[in-house]
Design a protein around this nucleic acid. Structure first.
Lengths: 197, 197
DNA sequence: TAATTTCCATACGCTAGCGTATTGACGCAA
DNA sequence: TTGCGTCAATACGCTAGCGTATGGAAATTA
């Protein structure tokens, strides 16, 4: 009798069939398109080319899917993205300003996701906790970079908040500006928020 | 035969019965609590102590209510609020920073409304237009104030954007800070964004 | 008073979405 | 082959929400 590999969820290798992750990814797409409430089982099934029967095999119910979405957002879409950036403090900071893309066109998905998460957080305690945690992590990360750059300790928190607010709002607001105008504004903002001596 | 008063909507004086405005206000409450999709006729009716029959007397359908909400937000919740502020440029600017309250507790309704509107704007063109217009008006208003204060023309747009972003994010983020910490951060941010010579 | 208008209640049909139960196809192991 | 586990299809019941139809009470007008 052979020793069987542990039946972990890593066992999704079997074939190229559908796994939890595909459903979660599809849920993210719906989330950014039209908010949490638009994440519904039958629409997901249709997009994945299967029926509900499949969904309820992988998930207990819709809530379990939403929890998975929350977890993944916290771990992969945010933390990992920030941690894996290289370069010196200034470079990382400047790169950070591009996490939420400021380019127009095709509805800037990053901003949509941030928006959807925050709307969600308004009426769901789990989401609220996750978003709060993420915000803390991001602002602290920015503050650390600013410290490395030699900004005075007493304004780290505030300046970090401003930078974070700027990045978020780039992706959230609905302006109609051409790319070059945005570029110019971006440069000026960078100078104001991160003055170099 | 007497001359009849024009049958304008101002004719809602008749009794203290329900009018369009009550439905719209109730819709705003639902909007800030849990987003556009949560605005539904039967819940509104229940809160107003009537049945659907009443709603469909005042409105053609749910869409007509949503359009009214959009209009009212544009006209009353935003424009009027900004226009009717007194004082000199600096005072008005500082006051503006308090439009979206930064105090914690009870879910800061101003921020919830802003969030809900922006989520809405992601998948509805009418909402998108209204929000874009409002954002333009607000940023331009801030820029005008900054001009009065003598800031150089070439950084008006950027600085106005930063200030606006700061105000918005105060109401949107989910932090856990005590009021005094928020106060301290607020002062530092003000110094950075609106330095006085 | 009689007629008409205004506002709301009740009852109904319809669809979308959730979740369950049952069955079936396929792979794999004994 | 037989049996078991994995994944999906189908069919069903149930609720929430939209919109309609109709009736009725109260106020207004004639």
């Amino acid at each position: 009798m052979e020793i069987k590999l542990p039946e972990t969820k890593a066992n999704t290798k079997r074939t190229s069939k559908l796994g939890r992750s595909e459903w979660i990814e599809a849920a993210f797409r719906l989330l950014t398109e039209s908010g949490v409430t638009s994440i519904n089982v039958e629409k997901l099934a249709k997009r994945l080319g299967v029926t509900k029967g499949s969904f309820y095999w992988h998930f207990k119910d819709r809530t379990e899917l939403l929890e998975a979405v929350l977890d993944k957002w916290h771990d992969q879409y945010v933390i990992a993205k920030v941690e894996h950036m290289g370069g010196d403090a200034y470079t990382r900071l400047i790169n950070l300003l591009d996490v939420v893309p400021r380019k127009r066109g095709s509805k800037h998905l990053g901003g949509s996701m941030e928006l959807a998460m925050r709307s969600w957080a308004r009426y769901d305690d789990d989401a609220e906790n996750v978003v709060a945690d993420v915000d803390r992590l991001r602002v602290n990360y920015v503050a650390d970079l600013l410290r490395e750059l030699g900004f005075p300790e007493e304004e780290l928190e505030s300046r970090a908040f401003l930078i974070y607010a700027y990045v978020m709002c780039q992706g959230i607001f609905s302006f109609e500006k051409t790319d070059d105008i945005l570029e110019r504004i971006h440069n000026t903002c960078t100078d104001i928020l991160i003055p170099r001596d």
